[in-house]
């Protein structure tokens, strides 16, 4: 008996619908069909009139969730792919994110973004949007990397009285399995030490946590103990846990699958160098995807994003400095 990351997301939505009658689901192909990835499989059967197929209108889907939230509902919006949330961008950053600040009325909506690259998905079905949304005040951005976090953080997101961008990684949907969903360990906003170490710290999130752990295994063979910090939520970002880790290791690699300009890895470096410059024994490093659209062919795609071997190579450079 095991449960995948994708099943955990379905189970969390089941539980959210079961616990709270004000929760409903709105998204493309999510009712009878169960969603493009089956993240809502059977939910429309189990909860009649709570799970709705939406027209292909990401702007209107988010707008309707905002209006529903004002009326006391807690909608979960499924974007078919994170990439298409760009059509709903205005509603997310200008309407949802500003509502509480402007009117004192909270906006409890959860927007699920199936994120990140998988082989063969190409430029418009592979994007990671967390940095774009994290830039705007008024949003919470979570990026679960484990089956437990996919489950508990989704449930926590729905209960939160603020708009949450839930970045779930498509690469983890089927690959990542757990024997069972363990207990809730940490709240949103706290990072997790995914692997303790003392020679260098990798700060990362989402699917890259697993690449980082594999790279850390590789470096272990050379006698290096690499600490891996899983951010869990990129906003808020748990700066204290990052700084405490860098204080232990003196070396930092900020790792992300997203495009290199600005973004989460740049934010990590900025925080560590401004608040913890004295903790560093070597210049911090960043590793991101290449600065091109995400390629289609697997040969190109594998070289576009960070992989275990490019992360290991970066760590070796970092440790030489």
């Amino acid at each position: 008996m095991s449960i995948t990351y994708l099943e955990a997301i379905r189970e969390a939505q089941y539980e959210a619908l079961r616990e709270d009658p004000s929760v409903f689901l709105y998204g493309q192909d999510i009712a009878t069909f169960g969603g493009a990835f089956k993240a809502t499989k059977n939910l429309s059967k189990e909860f009649p009139n709570r799970v709705f197929d939406a027209p292909i209108s990401e702007d209107a889907m988010v707008g309707m969730a905002i209006g529903a939230a004002v009326e006391g509902a807690r909608p979960i919006i499924e974007m078919q792919f994170a990439d298409f949330s760009s059509i709903g961008f205005n509603q997310i950053v200008n309407q949802a994110a500003t509502l509480f600040w402007r009117t004192n009325v909270p906006c409890p909506i959860t927007i699920r973004l199936p994120s990140g690259g998988t082989a063969g998905s190409g430029p418009f079905h592979s994007q990671s949007m967390e940095a774009i949304y994290a830039h705007y005040p008024g949003l919470v951005i979570v990026t679960p990397a484990t089956v437990e976090d996919a489950y508990w953080m989704l449930l926590d997101s729905v209960k939160l009285n603020d708009p949450v961008i839930f970045c779930e990684h498509k690469f983890l949907y089927y690959h990542l399995k757990a024997d069972q969903i363990g207990d809730r360990e940490l709240p949103i906003g706290k990072a997790r030490i995914a692997r303790p170490g003392r020679h260098a710290t990798i700060v990362t999130y989402s699917a890259m946590v697993h690449e980082a752990l594999r790279a850390a295994e590789e470096l272990q063979l050379d006698g290096y103990q690499i600490e891996v910090v899983d951010l869990r939520s990129v906003k808020p970002m748990d700066t204290d846990t990052i700084l405490a880790s860098v204080a232990r290791t003196g070396r930092l690699l900020a790792l992300g699958e997203a495009f290199p300009w600005g973004g989460v890895t740049a934010e990590i470096i900025a925080r560590v160098t401004t608040d913890g410059f004295h903790l560093l024994d070597a210049p911090p490093m960043r590793l991101n995807s290449k600065d091109t659209p995400i390629p289609y062919h697997p040969n190109l795609w594998k070289s576009h994003r960070p992989t275990t071997s490019t992360i290991a190579a970066a760590l070796r450079r970092l440790l030489r400095n």
């Binding site: 009658p21 004000s22 409903f24 009139n49 709570r50 209108s57 702007d59 209107a60 889907m61 988010v62 707008g63 309707m64 969730a65 905002i66 209006g67 529903a68 939230a69 004002v70 009326e71 006391g72 509902a73 909608p75 205005n90 509603q91 200008n94 309407q95 500003t98 509502l99 402007r102 009117t103």
Partner: peptide, 23 residues
């Protein structure tokens, strides 16, 4: 409370009605 982006309040008003119908 309108934002400056024209047309974007329509779906919000619709969403309020949708939630009431569900409730």
């Amino acid at each position: 409370a309108m934002i400056s982006h024209l047309g974007s309040l329509l779906s919000v008003v619709a969403g309020g009605l949708f939630a009431r119908r569900l409730a």
